[in-house]
Design a protein around this nucleic acid. Structure first.
Lengths: 222, 222
DNA sequence: CCTACCGATCGGTAGG
DNA sequence: CCTACCGATCGGTAGG
């Protein structure tokens, strides 16, 4: 699974005693921190934060048990970093996709078109490749300290802010029903829940999910 | 918080050395098992399964650290019992509410009316008093063994089976859009997500949530 | 259901 | 980033 990760299987190839030498692109270009974040995201998602030991994470990137603490103050800080990185990347992807859609269209986007882009980008962020960070954020939120929550919330607020005018416009058109605040929470619930049941190799593609979402939530406004 | 639960605060009232005597209704009427299930549900929900020690649970009901294992084989079996009890009660509540609605109506219920009853009962099960079991089921599912999952799934299947014909009827009427299977998953997502944000003492009541849900998902069929 | 206990594991650290 | 280590905690058990 991880060629670099397993000192045990690597052992037979040792030229001398001691751990195997790292090749150039494994060395601490500062990408060791990134490797830790990726492994932590994957393990936190699969097993949960509390059930994942820092030793598991270290082993997944070929480190010794104490070494993650060279990069992160403690286990909670590692979790917070996973979430912050996930939200930052999600926010960027959302922005890129919106910008691309605007650029690709000759006319200004309708609210429906905006919603489609946002929902589709959200499914990417939640279910696409390298997307463990966001489910971890959704399901381990309570572990964060208040201060850590504030930091991630700043990004989350930016992320949601893009949706608000789109949903307002749809509501004005009569294409979206219900109390706006509750409706937004329920929409996100419908989307985020997919992290619980969606299988990337399953029958439905992310485009299928997007289609269903719009058909389900938007009313046919005459 | 728990009058019975804290040996430390109870200590001054001891008449002799040793732990305080249990009064009649605290004694093992078989309700000690129930007490463990309730405490476990609350703590598993607040802190998560892995972050809750069996000692925490024992202390919450005034037991010593080893005593929960007199009632349950191990920690996982306690979790499974929490989920099974939660689903069994939810299923019963759903049935009762449907039966009551049928009995209270002079005419057969429309699909819309059925959906309203189901959604409202679901919010009770998810967010009402003594409702920790269901969120625990939703968020600690991966911890169960395959066999434990099967046991709980039998109840979950019964629970969902009640929804299927209602949603089918609404779809035939054109009141519900999207692929039926995906639409059902998204509807449940919208509802279940409320466990993440709903505050019982907040602005919105469970009736408000139900209203918004129907307005959001159902199309005005002419 | 308690007492007394055990082996295992865990987060984290000092010093290099 | 590793070595070597520590104190704390945890799930679980034997015996009553």
């Amino acid at each position: 699974m991880h060629a670099i990760a397993d000192p045990a299987t690597a052992a037979p190839e040792r030229r001398t005693r001691g751990r195997p030498r790292k090749t150039a692109d494994e060395r601490d270009d500062g990408n060791r921190r990134q490797a830790l974040l990726r492994a932590a995201a994957r393990l936190f998602r699969q097993q949960g934060f509390a059930a994942t030991s820092t030793r598991d994470i270290a082993a997944a990137v070929g480190m010794r048990s104490g070494s993650p603490f060279y990069h992160f103050d403690n286990k909670e800080a590692l979790l917070a970093a996973v979430m912050e990185e996930g939200m930052a990347r999600a926010l960027q992807h959302q922005g890129e996709q919106m910008a691309a859609a605007v650029a690709a269209s000759a006319t200004p986007l309708t609210a429906r078109q905006c919603l489609r882009v946002l929902v589709r980008a959200h499914f990417d962020n939640l279910l696409g490749p390298e997307s463990d960070h966001i489910p971890v954020m959704l399901y381990e939120w309570r572990v964060l300290s208040d201060e850590q929550k504030r930091a991630v919330n700043r990004l989350k607020d930016d992320y949601e802010a893009v949706w608000v005018p789109v949903l307002q416009a749809l509501r004005r058109d009569g294409a979206l029903g219900g109390d706006p605040r509750l409706a937004r929470l329920m929409l996100f619930g419908a989307l985020n829940w997919a992290a619980q049941w969606y299988l990337p190799d399953g029958r439905a593609s992310l485009d299928d999910l997007t289609d269903t979402t719009l058909q389900l939530f938007l009313k046919d406004v005459p």
